[in-house]
Nucleic acid binder design. Sequence first.
DNA 1: GGGCGTGGGAGACGGATGGGCAACAAAAAC
DNA 2: GTTTTTGTTGCCCATCCGTCTCCCACGCCC
Lengths: 350, 350
Amino acid sequence: MGNKNVGIKDVALAAGVSVTTVSHVLNEVAYARVRPETKEKVRAAAEQLGYEPNRLAQALRTQRTGMLGLLSEDIATTPHAGRIILGADEAAKARGYNLMILNTSAAATLDSRQADVEALLERRVDGILYATMYHRNVDLPPNLGNVPSVLVDSVSTGGNITAVIPDEESGARTAVSALVEAGHTRIGFLNNTDDVPATHLRLQGFRNTLDEAGLDGGAAPVESASSEVQGGYEAARRILERGAGADVPTALFCYNDRMAMGAYRAAAELGLAIPADLSIVGFDDQQLIAANLYPALTTVALPHYEMGAWAVEQLIDAIEGKTDLALMAAAPTVMDCPLVRRHSVAPPRA
Amino acid sequence: MGNKNVGIKDVALAAGVSVTTVSHVLNEVAYARVRPETKEKVRAAAEQLGYEPNRLAQALRTQRTGMLGLLSEDIATTPHAGRIILGADEAAKARGYNLMILNTSAAATLDSRQADVEALLERRVDGILYATMYHRNVDLPPNLGNVPSVLVDSVSTGGNITAVIPDEESGARTAVSALVEAGHTRIGFLNNTDDVPATHLRLQGFRNTLDEAGLDGGAAPVESASSEVQGGYEAARRILERGAGADVPTALFCYNDRMAMGAYRAAAELGLAIPADLSIVGFDDQQLIAANLYPALTTVALPHYEMGAWAVEQLIDAIEGKTDLALMAAAPTVMDCPLVRRHSVAPPRA
DNA sequence: GGGCGTGGGAGACGGATGGGCAACAAAAAC
DNA sequence: GTTTTTGTTGCCCATCCGTCTCCCACGCCC
């Protein structure tokens, strides 16, 4: 029913007890001794009046808001932020917390980000999640340290805050292994040109996996370009056209799904059928692309949902004193990137 | 600097005045008369101590939280939600409000959505935005009416709440006009099979535009399928293969960008070059697809950002007493869908 | 004595909590 | 078998959280 303005004292009045008692029974205070019948009366009155506690007043008194601040970069431009938010929101909801989300930009000045943190702090959030759009190193506003906080998908340049990131190297290994296991021996890599951790770690995973498979990782073809569709197209053309026919790769590992999309076009132009003539595996599992390409793209998923959920769990544990975040701050927690098998990988032609 | 727990009374102490005075000067209360020098002292003390007001206490006292609740369906699965959130967030921030976002699902029960509204109400948000994933009719939780609220991208089945929706019909006209103006006379429509307003209104816009151009809208080819890539592919094959060669459309208007993506594949398989042999225009302007298809897709953009921003403006105006939402509740506000020209439209072959 | 310029006191707002205070019962003292 | 003593139970009073705001106080000048 509508409650509008029923307060604890209205309930007390209706139940014929004091507000103290109402508070005790509704919060199930352990040390409070209240006769069962009285409890029942109170509950009935509360129910009947449609009483809902005013969280503001509660928070003021208890110094706990039950709100978590989430500062997220570029919510709109990437679906990744959405997955993080979703994971965080569900985990928070499950433990009785709510999220207050502020959007910021990867390009925002430190000052503006500091102001955002300030806004969260004024609202007395119990903890803060700072989520970035992609895995990189960030400068954090210093006031972030005023409440428990954890970094999602990034590592702090300061390095003293708990963080969770995807395991780029192992993700790359997973992707390349899928190709190796399908029987490919000539595998190329379409890499990104940005200087972010993923660029280096995926390359490393690529090389190591080949080496361990007895293929020469150091000699495998790698072409770099911007991590967009156009870049993927260009890099794919270069890699597929270089060298003699016999040296051309029969499989491509792409830095991300957008580049893979470019590779699809390059393959089509060169008359190469996927996966019969060319196998491809991407990275990121961007639904809109990976599932909609034809044939659907086999790719490695970034654990955005899981990172968001994990971060919230840690945060709440810390807030409730079950964990000490400082202990985890030494090194970032890494999370696995699982392979999503679709239809872009097949054995090479005999 | 770090503030931790400096309150108004600390400032008062430091400035040698009463808390009343501090409150007066920091809030620039109009009727309060305070000597300029005193004001200065207070401001200096506040600054020096790094005082930030406790919004909880403020809110408790003033009955205004400065928070807007945003209930959004399926944040993660569509970038649309992201655009709405972004528009809402920026508009809110500009007017000193913050957003509290809760995720819900289009499939969620009325009860669960009601619980979400309840959570927002407990936190005493000043108003609520209810954003849906795509334009349709929704059943709203009844407790939504307890605070000012506006519906984004949907119309309430009850019909008595302010809403803002895209102008589907005019969007379709814009799209089809672009084709007509390029010189096409045989234009087909790949429609959706879902029974949502957009399905009917876009069809209507399609037919009307053709009629007004002297082409026979009623006779124009329309194929319906699921509004995904695969559906688009199938519908496009059907439409491009039916009838004799001379009757085949030279241009396709697609229900959305995903279907357009399917149409691209169909065209490729049939040896039709885009835009030379076949012009295509989509709907939605899903960045990931529209900008990345080759050639890039000309499409109609849904005003998600604008709707989010508009909704927040109305909400805040209502909260601050500048507007009466009830006056606007009679009919939904419709917003324009602008054409985004890229490279998939050209004149038909001579 | 009224007006003006300055500033402070004392409740709210809605709920949480530690310390008490009655009432009654069981145990101990006489 | 009556009193005390010592506990329990069951419940409420008084305060506090941090801020705003109505209303009053004081000094001084006409």
